[in-house]
Simulated assay, not measured.
Amino acid sequence: MNSIITGKNIVKIFGKGNEQAKVLNGVNVEIAKGEFVAIMGHSGSGKSTLLFALSGMDEITSGSVKFDDIEISKLSENQLADVRRTKMGFIFQQPTMLKNLNLLDNIILPAVHNGKKDIEKLTQRAKNLMKKTGICGLESRDITEASGGQLQRGGICRALMNEPYILFADEPTGALNSKSAEEIMELLVEINKEGTAILLVTHDAKVAARADRILFMKDGNMISELLLQKFIGRDMEVREKKVLAGMAAVGI
């Protein structure tokens, strides 16, 4: 496997002394370049913690995480911040945007912080991304004037500004209605087809059905995986039934 991420024996413990809680129990995981992987499991299974560990957003207790052949578990915080800013993109359930900036400026902000000073080129890239994600014409809109689906599209644009190798998405459709959720997933499929790897946490079988591979977690352990064909006009109903059967087989 031509890997973008390799995690070996990842352990994550929260708390100290009698208050310790082991959330990841020596998890091994590998994500290929350009792959679309979903992580599923009950609340508290460790799926979001694993995503944060693999992206370097959370420090692991033991084990190792390699990203693009760089062992990020040994980087300094500044080095790690550089990797996240230049090679990773992040999409969350609730996009965090600055209220004093319009939608376009919120999208451009990470690239400006990355030292890319040509504002004209950044603005054009942001506008191209906004057109691609269906929010062209909302550049000057305050974030309080945008719908949840529009803000999530803006969050995707922002995540793509620095042309990341991989997108990490934690319940990206959790706060959206079914129509907006389906549109967001279609966008992520298109982004993946263009070569960007995606690692997505979800509890929704319909969302997970868009992935190439599904990892099932329970009590901090990776207990099973389900392989699906690459999503190219495949029958969604058939894919969703496979995901539901996989969930039932492992008791989640």
Rank of each mutant, 00 (worst) to 15 (best):
I252N: 07
K241N: 13
D204Y: 03
G148T: 10
L167E: 00
G155V: 11
E163R: 10
D68N: 12
K230G: 10
G56I: 08
E145T: 02
I156A: 14
A53P: 00
N102K: 03
A146H: 01
R141Q: 05
K87T: 07
L187N: 02
M217E: 03
G137E: 06
S43N: 09
V207T: 10
G115Q: 06
A32G: 08
I166H: 12
L226D: 01
M88P: 01
K8R: 15
V250H: 02
K242S: 14
V29T: 13
E77V: 11
S180K: 01
S180M: 15
A126P: 07
E77L: 15
K8N: 13
V83C: 05
I166W: 06
M40L: 14
M247C: 09
L75G: 14
Q150P: 06
E183N: 06
N102R: 04
I39V: 10
T49L: 10
T61D: 08
E77Q: 11
L226E: 07
N2T: 06
M40T: 06
S55H: 00
V83D: 05
Q94N: 15
A111R: 02
P164N: 13
F52C: 05
G233H: 02
L75M: 15
F14D: 11
I143S: 09
I232P: 00
K116L: 15
G26Y: 06
I72V: 10
I4F: 01
F14N: 09
T123V: 08
A245L: 11
A111E: 07
V27R: 00
Q152S: 13
I232H: 10
V11R: 13
I13Q: 00
I135P: 09
M217I: 06
Q20A: 12
T6D: 10
F67H: 09
A146G: 09
I5K: 01
G26L: 10
V250K: 02
Q93H: 08
T49S: 13
N78Y: 05
L199T: 02
V201F: 08
I39F: 07
I108P: 05
L24D: 04
T133A: 10
Q124D: 13
L50A: 01
S64C: 10
A181V: 04
R210T: 12
H113L: 14
D118C: 00
D235V: 07
Q79S: 13
G137A: 04
G137H: 07
K8Y: 09
S178N: 11
I135Q: 02
I13S: 11
G56S: 08
T96F: 05
G26P: 08
D170K: 06
E77G: 13
N78C: 06
A181M: 05
M1H: 08
S45P: 03
K16H: 12
N2I: 06
A205N: 02
L151F: 10
K74L: 14
M1T: 13
S48F: 11
I223F: 03
F90H: 08
G149A: 15
I10F: 10
L227P: 01
L129Y: 12
V250A: 12
V29Y: 11
G89D: 07
K179D: 13
